[in-house]
Amino acid sequence: MDAQPAAPGARFVDPNALARIGSLELLARTVVDGFINGLHKAPYLGVSIDFAEHRMYMPGDDIRFMDWRVFARTDRFYVKTFEADTNANFSVLFDVSRSMSFTSGGVSKLDYGRYLAACLTYFSTKQRDRVGLVTFDDDIVTRVPPSAKHLEVVLHTLDRIEAGRPGSFERPLFKATEFFKRRGILLFISDFYDEPQAIVDALKPFRYGGNDVLVFHVLDPAEIDFPYDDATSFQDLETGRKLPVVPEKLREQYRQLVQEHVGALSKLCGENRIDYAMFNTSQPLDHALFQYLAMRHKLTRVR
């Protein structure tokens, strides 16, 4: 994947440098605050507390929102309503299957996904969204229901997760559909090692439930470029199966298959109005924020 051009003033932080920050909250703050400072003039930073309309006072309304000036002019009771918060549910569905623990020397996919989830959760909290988290491998591992007060719980959960078991999409995501009765923004972070059609089939129920679905496809550089040289045995992290491989001979075919996989997944997601983005773990996290906000901006315009 080609590197995205850096926005003016943006501060790109190397994931390897971020990995040395122990606290996820501090990490998220480091990335997000710096990012916001760099983009304070960005046009799509428009989600804020705005006056929406007046409506007639109904018994039971909070009298603190009574507009006394209107009462003085019209002698009628009106209350002010605000479009202050999006009040959206922002949930991260994080694949913690064993393949996510892979690293070719830098930050593992799991850590990269962890940083992504932490940053975007923090970012969403800044926007008064309710934040939640679901981790899954072959089943649901942990669940933090969306709440405006759950930032720390989400960060703590993210901090604790470990990749251990083989993963799948159909079964855990089918279960997860039960958690999201209310519409919200769902962010899927995974390496998506499955057939594209099967993946999209597992995501469709969320989309049909009215959720805005974002898919972050996280891959290690070695998974993209296959830079191995000497013939040796490769072991599948999830199945444990070993295969003798001569990388030199397979490299081109492998790269082609990966590109086809990414292309197919991107195409199917587009067809189903699912936002897809692929991330290389060697790229700065800021890029993920750009990607996310671009999507949010698009959603705002649609709304």
């Binding site: 393949s99 996510m100 892979f102 996919k109 390496d191 090692y193 290690d220 998974e223 191995y228 000497d230 013939a231 040796t232 045995s233 490769f234 072991q235 599948d236 992290l237 999830e238 199945t239 199966r241 070993k242 295969l243 003798p244 491989v245 001569v246 001979k249 397979l250 075919q253 492998y254 298959l257 990966v258 996989h261």
Partner: peptide, 23 residues
């Protein structure tokens, strides 16, 4: 001759490798 390294490389998934015909 083929010089096969003794150490095993762990890879996230051999999904794509398995699709390549073995020679």
């Amino acid at each position: 001759i083929q010089r096969e390294r003794k150490e095993v490389i762990e890879f996230p998934s051999l999904m794509f490798v398995r699709r390549i015909p073995f020679h």
